[in-house]
Nucleic acid binder design. Sequence first.
RNA 1: GCCCCCAUCGUCCAGUGGCCCAGGACGCCGCCCUUUCAAGGCGGUAACGGGGAUUCGAAUUCCCCUGGGGGCACCA
Length: 480
Amino acid sequence: MVENAPMNVRVRFSPAPTGSLHVGSARTALFNFLFARHHGGTFVLRIEDTDRARSKDEWVVGIQDTLRWLGLDWDEGPVLQSERFSEYRTAASELLDRGLAYECYCTPEEIRERNDAAMTAGRSPGYDGRCRDLDDSQRVALAAEGRSRSVRFRTPDDGTSRFVDEIRGEVTVEWASVHDFVILRADDTPIFFLANAVDDLAMGITHVIRGEDLLDSTHRVLALREALGGGSPLSFAHLPLILGTDRAKLSKRHGAVALEEFRDAGYLPEAVCNYLALLGWSPDDGREVMDLDEVVDAFSLAGVTHAAAAFDHAKLDWMNGEWIRRLTLDELAERARPLAEERFGDRLDDELFVAGLRIGQERAVTIGQLLDQMEFLFVADDEFEIAAESWDKLVATERVDDALGAVEEHIARMEWDGAPVDLRDTLAAAAFEKPRKVMPAIYAAIEGRHAGLPVFDAIALLGQEKTLVRLRAARARLAR
RNA sequence: GCCCCCAUCGUCCAGUGGCCCAGGACGCCGCCCUUUCAAGGCGGUAACGGGGAUUCGAAUUCCCCUGGGGGCACCA
């Protein structure tokens, strides 16, 4: 795969710690990781916590935990921008000295009002340049009014800004439509654009791979970068956004969006990475189920698509099943055990747990769903419940008491050896020619759900006593 | 409102002028297997948004329209 990348690739993933890692950011992290590893480069983690009001330490930790869970290990960092404020202030005052930026005394409220007015008058919003050319006496007067000062970067008045995106090709915009923007807040803390430009320069970043939502801001960051001295060339690659299946912005309404939710529901990181890699990218040979090393090997920015992709939970589910089936029983048990302990507590019997996994693995979608199916093994007889929907199915079954009675008799009489139980002859003898019709009721009575782990194995795991208790309980309830 | 990006089955991708009356995957439907449901096997349904232009020939090139997404913060 030919890729014109410099020798020493340095990329960074730079999330703002204002929430847990969600699908879109995770995909960005993944693609940065893939690009770095593919080129033997360096993957840096940088935390963009310049907005002190919205950033939280717990998210700084949480994001790192999630990246580790995904297997996206970084080589440098985390670098916290909150610890580098003096660098950004120095850069800002330098721009001020050189006239590339200016002090602005407008308050956010005033700007908002003027923007609203501009909008209703049919004009475009954006800073109107009021403080652009103040002289010293005007500045002193505004400060004397008690106004605080922010620093604004002066963008060109005319001409065209252009850069070549590694994925999209040339992207241009007229400078006239890019307004002057704040780089230092009134409280002297830096804004994203400044910190971003300063750090990419300081850290020797060679490629910026991020979401398409940042495409327009690239012109501003590039202008700032140039004002700050340029440095070596920096390539940009903007990834298509991830949307919901309805093409609307991905949100909770579309199901899980935070990576923690997927972890807690029992999705495997292999499956999540695999699925995310295929959202907006595909290998030349069309493979789909690939581990991280294989993806690293095949990865290329040239293979990234241009259009936004919809996140399809159904395909992720399928892929997770594929990955669960690729695990050995020991591996599956290792992955599932923490979730099982959390869920079943002291009632968890490890031997039974592993035995349950063994019969459930081939049909599993997620570990969480597997635990749902195993719950009946770890619940006390007096806490055992049949799901409402399943009970309805049981009641609706023709000659259900006869069927349960026949099974009860079979279990009671049989010689118990722990092997799977074969009910076919028994049901046939009781004139049930089509097991398909009565099986859901038997499942419901024994497992509490009308579909679950194969009941013949389940009975063997549950034990003769408990199985009989449940069958009798179901028949007693039926008689009421 | 202005600016930017994008446009192949329901969804994710393949396709870079003839190999395409468009291929794969998920989903969906049917059949097989089956002591439930799955998993697995086999088969099926289903798309180049519209209009111009270039060309012997356009899913592939260009233009317009339409549609979708993003941006226009003292968020990132």
